[in-house]
Amino acid sequence: MSGHNCVAIATDTRLSTQLMTIDTSFQRVFKVTDSCLMGVSGLGTDVQTLQLTLRSFYFSNSLMKFKLNLYRLKEGRDMKADVFSKLVATSLYEHRFGPYFVSPVIAGLDKVGENEYSPVICTYDSIGYREHNGQFEVAGTGAELLYGVCETFYKPNLEPEQLFEVISNSLLSALDRDSLSGWGAKVYLLTPTELTVRSLKTRQD
């Protein structure tokens, strides 16, 4: 979700096989650059293949981390959120006929002027269609439930703390109706100067 000079990603922290919960503190959201966050939902193995964890040492094939580092070496700067969002789209489209079973969400802030930032909010289907309307995007098993609540609760140009309230309430409402999500939730709130991560108390069933 985007606000005025801020963006946020909210996610649950559950990892499961079918109906059985495996992990209740699975990390799905990663900091790509200082201006961009990426949340990946979907098949656990593909999430980790795509992800950008700092422990990329263990996951030698963490795809996006590799591409980011290569870009940094070539260009001598961090990728802009908007550029990164397109890179993710092409990376997914590359696997058009054997897709990764993921649907990532990207939230970033690109500087467009003095104290002025344009939010980058987009989501993808598994083969790289980039969906972006600048307001909110949803992905994952609870996506259909989230569409409804976000549509109702979202207002444009929210300040960071208001955005936190709206996104948290939207997520919690959807979690209570989706049996495959829950078991803890995290909200990542990105402003130009600070990244705030908050763990929310959720139902554990």
Binding site: D23, T24, S25, Q27, W183, G184, V197, S199, Q204
Partner: peptide
């Protein structure tokens, strides 16, 4: 805590 994060580092990024 009930959140299943015992013994795990406070990893958030």
């Amino acid at each position: 805590t009930g959140r299943g994060n015992e013994g795990k580092p406070n990893k958030y990024l």
